[in-house]
Design a protein around this nucleic acid. Sequence first.
RNA 1: ACCCGGGUGGUGAAAUCGGUAGACACGCGAGACUUAAAAUCUUGUGCCCCGAAAGGGGCGUGCGGGUUCGAGUCCCGCCCCGGGUACCA
Length: 811
Amino acid sequence: MSEIDTPTPYEPRSIEPKWQTRWTERATNTAKLDAPERPFYALMMFPYPSAEGLHVGNLFAFTGSDISARFHRLIGHDVFQPLGFDAFGIHSENYALKVGAHPMELTPKNVGNFTRQLERAGFMIDWNQKVDTSRADYYKWTQWVFLQLHKQGLAYKKAAAVNWCPTDKTVLANEQVEGGLCERCGTPVEQRFLEQWFFRISEYAPRLLNNLDWLDWSPITKQAQRNWIGKSEGAELTFEVPSSGERIAVFTTRADTIYGATYLVLAPEHPLVASITTDAQRGEVAAYQERATKQDLISRKSSKEKTGVFTGAYAVNPATGQNIPIWIADYVLMEYGTGAIMAVPGHDERDFEFAQVFRLPVVRVVAAADQQADTPFDGAAFTDDDKDCRLVNSGRFDGLAVRDAKREVTAWLAEGGHGKGVTNYRLHDWCISRQRYWGPPIPIIYCDDCGAVPVPESQLPVELPFIPDFKPDDSGISPLARHEEWYRVPCPTCGKTARRETDVSDTFLDSAWYFLRYPSATRDDVPFDAARTKTWLPVNSYIGGNEHAVLHLLYSRFITMVLKDAGHIDFEEPFTRFRAHGMIIREGAKMSKSKGNVINPDLYMEEWGADAFRMYLMFLGPYEEGGDFRDQGISGVRRFLDRLWASVRDAVRDGSPDPDVIRKLHRTIKKVGEDTANLGYNTAIAAMMEYMNAVRRGERVPHRAEVEPLVQLVAPYAPHLAEECWEALGHEGSVFNAGWPTFDAAQLVDDEVELVVQVNGKLRGKLRVAADVTQEAVMAQAMADEAIAKFVVGTPKKVIFVPKRLLNIVV
RNA sequence: ACCCGGGUGGUGAAAUCGGUAGACACGCGAGACUUAAAAUCUUGUGCCCCGAAAGGGGCGUGCGGGUUCGAGUCCCGCCCCGGGUACCA
């Protein structure tokens, strides 16, 4: 053995590739899929493989997820952590259009680059089970999922408005429209009517809402879903139109205000408009309807000025028996409720505004405690409905509290055949049609004789052909519709020449079931293997961004429910636990390409090492809130890793460890374990740093027993260095098979504590006392301390003693 | 407008139950090592005031009230920032 003059420094550049290679060679990250003892499915939201490569936001998300997965493995679970690529969809296609490439050629390149970066970062991913939504062996089963919904009657076709960008000549998804403008070119988006496929997610609204009560999800995510589902309890009331014999149904949450309903308003698209409109008004009404439909959805919703037209018809208010005029106006939306409202201008802001513009009568039917039946409106509607508000000008209901009146008025109207209590949901059916190229063709064939025929499951996949002219054009139909050789097929039922559906499905359908595919990713005969699914699902831990709270996360829950109802699986919630991570900003500002302040993870990993980069991302703020990336901050984490390595390298085996350090170690084990389990990564790292400061104060050479457990604690955070240290300590196998250190509760109790002494709540001194000291003894000790005693003038009025914490003397 | 988050030093941030505000880290100051620098190590670092120093005092968690022996934490009323939804009846 030769003495080495220069001790080996910490060199992430050499040890990180070394361990990445070993993990692959030794299959360290491969899960025991078929006979796990304690299966734990750790899932992170899969990325869309952009050409720019991994964004630091991806790395932040994945690192937090990876730490959780590695931690669960260390505490004894068989962890399965797969990853794949959300490679189909408009994002990929738009990028291909921008750079003039073909998505079918671009995607594998991007996937390759992503895979390299993910390996570079050292994630514990089981790459045997990867998924790529744009490959036929995956989207075959996406099409299968569509067919299951179709079979259940949950997929249907109807004409609906889509967003159309006249510059890009393409249909846009809602999420690609920002403030009424195309996100790519800034052109105002227009509205077009096209035949589209929808999924009946609205039928599942009550179940999607109710299950939130027991799901272990981040509260912010649950709240977002509740808002999106938008449960609204109210009543559907009917108004008769004597002139035409029609009955108009309206939805209201304020049935109590029926006596103040002075007119009705229908959405311009309402089906009854044509039959009730009088001849005199017909021209004006038609003109208004035309204008409303032509106008795009966004500007209609954003311009709040009230417009409308009188139909010439009247309806009978069932409460007052009076005839009230029927108007049409675009502030009433056909998509919500019944597409018609009873207008109560006295108690609804929008109705009030409308009534002002068209000089319609405003009647007070609700009054607060300090108001009378004839208190005038002060230029605005009175919308309060709290317990002090009572009905006025409402016949037999006068004096009733609003709360009770809602119920009683509805019951009374129901008795007279004028309505019933109903619950409405804001959630709309899910439009899954995309007039685009880069997605799974919807597996439907149109036959003149047989109608819309589902493609038989045995004929899946309906492969997406390679076509060079994938660019969408002005026609509003999918590029696939330009390829007769592809869409012309025999009808599966009668054999007559028929035509394939040329639209593809929404990217969100690809990702609405991918978690089911991972454990069975290598099977090509079934979408998911029954035994594996039973073993691994539902997902134990799902971590991702809250931007998907209402799209991906809701769709996944819906698809899971449908598959359960169809008997394919035996659970209806896909993710037992979901945690939303925060967002990373840089030097106080949002990162964006235009600002040129985007972090390139490769550069940081090159300079500081993947472990330091991972750990810094976790240290800069609470994981669930995100944080501010400061370029200088990473040096502190790197210093910690340098010191860890040096401590392990220099650790002595002889003699015994310092008992004070060991006591601190046990506290650290407890804290790091608890914090890591709760995603409190920043404070877990702080605790490890604090411990390191005790282990390696000055030139102190630590004992092996002081540093070895720390290597295990740091392993989820800095996996490469942990392995290197573990090996340096003489261990053969991976540190990830070594378990998690346990703490000794006896080491946590102090026999001596520092007690704070306050006088009138102000800190005046600190005393070291035995943990079980009595109040009398502390009091005596405090009064013997001149620095404290000088503030105690006269006899104390009161003394508060909190054992192990403080003594407060009140004078 | 509504619904969620959040506001703490020069900076990123800590703070189970109401109990030492500012852990940990960056930055900065001082010192050791060095011919020098870097690296490393030691040490100081909320603000203000008195003091040569030792030391002492006051103030302090967005603003204004309140509860309490004691409030970053609880209650009432505001202001500001971030996110989501939005003519949803």
